[in-house]
């Protein structure tokens, strides 16, 4: 059994409670920021920011949309970062939940190589090279609670639970919103434990919303996205399905 997030961006209002709840639970400091002409702040994920709501104004079919994307680690079934690191004292997968966990030993890894390996551009490094990202609030999950971001979400955009249940919930929601948003889609849902539902083309939300064929290092540029994913995850898909 593994655990998954399901993030329904069609219900997100970008209140950013998740962003704060994450910092609160992890006792993470705030970053010194300035207003850069956007509500999105901090500008990006960082060693001290595991969860970030991305804001994008997009005109789609002549209609203004303000798209919100609560970005975080996808906890891939077979995580490239883990494979690249090849050091279970630095990056390991919690067998009970499937959470991909970074430890302080990530300091000994080649940080840039790990960051490059992530198709979703999630890990961030400290000055000393230690890496950090969402840890699925493993302590909470192990004690029967949901991650802090899910707990605090007011609108029902964030969900957490058994991976198969989350996937079926995601599919159910997808079917519900298809009428209103014909282009709605689940992002890489067979490969990750953080399933996003977007109403529009995922790239309008975030450059790294889906594992990209252009993403350096991992995937050959000639492959289609689906092929690339297949290749990326190939050796592990069978195992992953067993976990589910």
């Amino acid at each position: 059994m593994s655990k998954s997030f399901f993030i329904d961006t069609t219900l997100c209002t970008a209140c950013r409670a998740c962003q704060v709840a994450c910092k609160q639970w992890h006792d993470l400091p705030a970053e010194k920021t300035t207003n850069r002409g956007s509500f999105q702040n901090p500008a990006d994920l960082s060693f001290e920011t595991y969860k970030l709501v991305r804001f994008n104004e997009q005109v789609i079919d002549g209609k203004l949309n303000w798209l919100f994307f609560p970005d975080q680690c996808r906890h891939c079934y077979e995580a490239p970062c883990l494979e690249v690191a090849d050091d279970p004292t630095a990056i390991f997968k919690d067998p009970a939940t499937g959470a991909v966990i970074f430890t302080a030993n990530t300091k000994n890894l080649d940080a840039d190589e790990i960051i490059d390996s992530c198709p979703y551009n999630i890990p961030r490094k400290a000055k000393d090279g230690t890496l950090a990202k969402c840890d699925m609030c493993l302590d909470r999950v192990q004690n029967g609670q949901v991650p802090a971001c899910v707990k605090t979400c007011p609108t029902g955009a964030m969900h957490f639970g058994e991976s198969d249940e989350m996937l079926s919930l995601a599919k159910q929601r997808l079917a519900q919103v298809k009428g209103k948003f014909p282009k709605a889609t689940l992002l890489d849902s067979d490969f990750v434990q953080t399933i996003y539902l977007t109403a529009h083309d995922p790239e309008l939300y975030s450059k790294y919303a889906i594992a990209s064929v252009t993403n350096k290092g991992i995937i050959a540029p000639m492959l289609t996205r689906q092929e690339a994913l297949q290749k990326m995850f190939k050796p592990f898909i069978a195992a992953a399905k067993e976990l589910v």
Binding site: A132, D139, N143
Partner: peptide, 26 residues
């Protein structure tokens, strides 16, 4: 709970096995 990087497993004198096997306390 407080370090940004999560578990500093080996440096704390716990074996990785322990850290993974035991449920963390809230």
């Amino acid at each position: 709970g407080a370090t940004a990087a999560g578990l500093a497993v080996s440096s704390l004198g716990f074996s990785l096995k322990d850290a993974r096997a035991h449920t963390q306390m809230l």
